[in-house]
Design a protein around this nucleic acid. Structure first.
Lengths: 205, 205
DNA sequence: TTAGGAAATCTAACAACGTTAGGAATGGAT
DNA sequence: ATCCATTCCTAACGTTGTTAGATTTCCTAA
């Protein structure tokens, strides 16, 4: 009995070590260096051992994607402590772009079509929920009635992703991208506020 | 003499056939099917022949990316014929997202980090120039003085790319993405207009 | 017309990849 | 001490991008 639990513990442990090794390779050397053999070497095993813990490479990468979203989520939670509703939004935007700049390779696999669309949406959900929550309190604070919260959130999410990609694809520098995200957010929010007259009629977005 | 020009013509011709075959494979079967051997087979040559026309696979893919941008540019030119300045902007936004939906695999390689960042920026330039031009006439028509045109353009470009990616990554449907892009554009432009008071003082974006 | 040489093309191979099969070692239970 | 399941490794398969070397094709020049 006790031996079987120990074995399970060891299994879970090496599984975790594989994920950590993969994450380290990805972050330090990029997606091209992320090979099964390389990971196996780093954890001092032969390549097939990896397949005892993950069905295939995509399943392992999915774990990295999930880790990335947890990381992003924690940074969002940190940024969400800002009391001012408006500054809170801009800080979220800035933080998202900063994340993309600080973890470019991770950011890449987090938005790579090779990982299944449903799985990707699933692991990204908590992050989007935070955005949705912040957007709700923001609209309440400004008496803005958004006709469709999901839609507004998707616009924000898409916009942030696009501008973050701008830097990650090398079109603009990281600092500028952060500034762009803040300005884009400001413009969008201002647009929504303007669409809602003082009497609080639902905006048509 | 005349034979050498004929040879050059034949060379250019097979080069073009390779590009067309590659484009066809990419659009119909996706990036995974785009292999050198497959392309060579389709043009009825052996694989090494491809390397007489392109230094490596990336150089060939870059040609597809350039083609994609030319295609996008022509659709932009078509959409830019809309006389109304505001509708022209929304049509551009809509058209961009539509392009991503109709050419998903092409859209993917057009924004793939495997192709060199400088080259990618270079082939995308004409498209961005159209966007910049449209943005200029729009701001003039509305007496909006944008402090930094490049920045405004980058925000637009990033936003459109982000929302197009939303559908291309499977987060939202194609029709909804097009609508989202229009709404995002509307909000941003409205935000910029609001930032510029009636007297035409430069907006702080 | 034919000998020579450049250009074009093919076959074969290399290294690296993801992945699987089959056997050897390990180690707790009877 | 024996058995059996788990763990692990070596070897291999098929595919990828890419290159070397041989072979064929075809124009040029004697």
């Amino acid at each position: 009995m006790s031996t079987s639990t120990r074995r399970a513990r060891e299994r879970a442990n090496t599984r975790e070590r594989i994920i950590e090794a993969a994450l380290h390779v990805l972050e330090t050397e990029g997606v091209a260096a992320l090979t099964i053999r390389r990971i196996a070497t780093d954890v001092e095993y032969s390549a097939p051992v990896v397949y005892q813990h993950f069905a295939n490479k995509d399943a392992l990468v999915l774990e990295l994607v999930a880790h990335g979203h947890r990381l992003l989520l924690s940074e969002f939670h940190h940024a969400a402590q800002e009391p001012d509703t408006d500054r809170r939004m801009t800080r979220i935007a800035s933080q998202y772009v900063r994340f993309a700049g600080e973890h470019p390779h991770l950011f890449r696999v987090m938005n790579d079509p090779v990982v299944d669309a449903d799985e990707r949406r699933r692991v990204a959900e908590p992050v989007i929920d935070v955005l949705k929550e912040l957007l709700t309190t923001w609209s309440a604070a400004h008496n803005v009635v958004l006709a469709d919260l999901d839609q507004a959130c998707e616009i924000l999410w898409g916009t942030l992703y696009g501008i973050a990609s701008l830097s990650y694809l090398g079109n603009v520098g990281g600092d500028r991208a952060r500034y762009l995200a803040e300005q884009a957010l400001r413009a969008i929010l201002l647009g929504w506020r303007t669409e809602t007259p003082a009497n609080g009629r639902p905006a048509s977005n």
